[in-house]
Design a protein around this nucleic acid. Structure first.
Lengths: 226, 226
DNA sequence: ATCAGTTCACAGCGTTCA
DNA sequence: TGAACGCTGTGAACTGAT
């Protein structure tokens, strides 16, 4: 590409360009379609707001214009509105890409997401200050008592690793039939393993006790329980 | 729809005037035909509502006026109705363009489209904006997840083509019974094939799983499910 | 900062009706 | 006939995601 002129203040890779609003914005930014002042790259082409909007609308609506003349109308800032057919053709000629326009699907998806956020933000507005307070209390209590890393459960590991012959049995990888995998085949359970299951009852009791304690701890954090 | 623009040397404020509230609203807006107060550009010429309507009607009806005098009647706001021939001539002289008047064809097309929209809009009038939005979300989700070409089902074709010997008895190809063409000649179907029906159960299971997955996919597209 | 989409006031077309 | 109005494309100014 051309070497930047000496007057170019904000060369690419400039460190802090402290936003030079007064600098004579050289007219390198010219719309490739109509010659109007461009505002940046749109759909891969340096172009103005007008041609940007025109291209998106035209593609999105899927219209097909017809030039009343010889399909070679000059496209300038002043004349660009005279012939839509030639304007759209010029857009394509200079390389505007249809595929950079979001599909109607992607748009509705994006809109739905935004609507959801709006609603989520508007919802808590309908709550009273008291309700807000209660929510934050509950969240705080949960945070303080919930062992998200499960590190406390380390103390309750059984001394002997017990392998339950469940779904991880040496069965051939089925052709994607998850529903059937919920019931392990009984053939793999033999009598030798069963006695150990009963020996773990005390262990489960301890575990249950611990978990109940956790719930009580949580409840105690909530003022309403007093 | 093409929109006319000011003449090519883009005059100041030709586009959206960047809001100049203090500018003395000089009556630069003068009809180029009759001198009346103009309401904007019409058919490429700054003109009043009267000359605008007159020009369109005249062209549309294709009439040909004749001046009773010397074809040089003065056209002013007060006298413009006196001579249609000279008024139309003046319109053309100052540059009004016939080609900016929509053809009867384009008009009827536009009218039909509008009528259609009226009817479509009268129907869902009982729905709130929120409901409308929900509908479009559902439609978008369906479009995105429904495999209208059923191309995905290609993966679930049974390895062996199975023909179910149904009600079509060994009759000669009846005249004009296209449904029969779906089942190949029965001579090729013997008893050996029937047991295979049961062997296809896993296949149906896979198929069901796939379809359930599709339904889940659809549900996930709906924000309310989060 | 850039570049997608979104908003909205306006320009200019046709339409209506007194 | 023409003032008032409805409708749609336009583009400057915005929001928002990256």
């Amino acid at each position: 590409m051309s070497v930047s002129s000496p007057s170019e203040p904000d060369s690419p890779g400039a460190q802090h360009s402290p936003h030079v609003p007064d600098v004579p914005e050289e007219e390198l930014k010219v719309c490739a379609v109509c010659g109007d002042r461009a505002t940046g790259y749109h759909f891969h082409v340096m172009s103005c707001e007008g041609c940007k909007g025109f291209f998106r609308r035209s593609i999105l609506k899927g219209v097909h214009f017809t030039c009343p003349l010889a399909r070679s109308c000059p496209i300038t800032k002043a004349k660009r509105r005279q012939c839509q057919a030639c304007r759209l053709q010029k857009c394509l000629d200079v390389g505007m890409r249809k595929d950079m326009i979001m599909s109607e699907e992607a748009l509705s998806q994006r809109r739905a997401l935004r609507l959801q956020r709006r609603l989520a933000q508007a919802r808590p507005a309908g709550l009273t200050a008291e309700q807000q307070e209660l929510i934050s209390i509950l969240i705080a209590a949960h945070k303080r008592t919930f062992d998200s890393s499960f590190s406390q459960f380390q103390h309750y590991q059984p001394a002997v690793r017990l392998c339950i012959p469940g779904p991880c049995s040496p069965s051939p990888p089925g052709p994607g039939v998850p529903l059937a995998s919920l019931s392990p085949p009984l053939e793999y359970l033999d009598e030798d393993v069963l006695p150990d299951v009963f020996s773990m009852l005390p262990h489960f009791a301890d575990l249950s006790t611990f978990m109940i304690q956790q719930v009580i701890k949580f409840a105690k954090e909530i003022p309403a329980f007093r």
